[in-house]
Design a protein around this nucleic acid. Structure first.
Lengths: 165, 165
DNA sequence: TACATTAAGTCAGCCTTGTTGACACTCCAA
DNA sequence: TTGGAGTGTCAACAAGGCTGACTTAATGTA
């Protein structure tokens, strides 16, 4: 990539630089969630609801088990959140066509609307950050994020999204 | 930065690309906290304890009020965590020299040891991600994170750390 | 066909970590 | 000397994690 030092120069990354990266993740993550959190609070929802809404929107028709794996929480924990979303008419749970034990989850119109509202807030911030940092920085940003994830989980999510196309 | 399109090309960033960035933050953040979480669980501590330990280590001698601002939680919430850390001998609270109402917070030897253990886990992962992504990506990564943060909070933290030098 | 397994949901109870509100104490500065 | 700031604490509550145990329905298999 035009760097004569190559990736060996990473050996010279100081402890301090690594620590700043970790702190950066903390502060940036907070920055990214603060607006949605505010919106959710007015609706008596929390971040857990947001996560469920987000992933149901991204993989419509996904099953409860899939969602559990992606979110990494227990069935009981997810169910509490899912129940309120269904009761409030934001999420619809349809009995599976092939396997009737499964439930396929979808956002209703109202659910889609809330997803858009929450997502808009985040996308606006993200877009602003991208614009400020510049196109090359964005590509680097995404590369590092990719490398930081749990590969298994990443793969699981990718195939889940492919399946629902 | 050598991009003939300039930052205007960001206008062509699709919704999907922005969404992937948001999801990337979610999965990467989880990747970064999973190991520390496991360690903390064996010690009957949580992420809140980690955050306190982290920032006391980064700004030794900081006051409770400063810590409150950085963490963005209530006094009662922080105090509960701080109390257990002090009782367990990981944090020391010294009465301020200039202003005796203030408490200056420090890690004890045991506290420093735990900080190192938690931090090692995160730094190892971070370093691996940096190495995988390459030096240019790292610089971009940091730029985007910087741009995503709350500027005020970022500034507050920076000056706090300068003060404690 | 009978039985084991899987998907989903539920009940009860626990913990951490966040919140409000109220209050006391110490200390500093005007 | 008095008001306000920094700290600590009590009580009560809520969200959202967790474990364990159990039901129901549907599916797959011996």
């Amino acid at each position: 990539m035009g760097d004569t030092l190559g990736s060996d120069s990473l050996l010279f990354l100081t402890d301090e630089q690594i620590r700043q990266g970790i702190e950066g993740m903390y502060f940036a993550y907070r920055g990214l969630t603060s607006e949605p959190d505010r919106i959710l609070a007015t609706l008596a929802y929390g971040r857990a609801h947001h996560r469920a809404i987000h992933f149901i929107n991204r993989a419509p028709g996904t099953t409860v088990t899939n969602l559990l794996e992606i979110l990494g929480v227990t069935k009981q924990s997810l169910n509490r959140v899912l129940r309120t979303l269904i009761e409030d008419g934001l999420v619809e749970s349809r009995v599976g066509k092939i396997d009737k034990r499964e439930r396929n989850l979808f956002l209703t119109e109202a659910g889609t609307a809330l997803e858009a509202r929450l997502s808009d807030a985040q996308r606006t911030r993200m877009r602003a950050a991208y614009r400020e940092a510049g196109p090359e920085a964005v590509s680097g940003f995404r590369k590092v994020l990719e490398a930081m994830m749990d590969k298994e989980l990443r793969q699981k999510y990718a195939s889940l999204r492919e399946a629902n196309t």
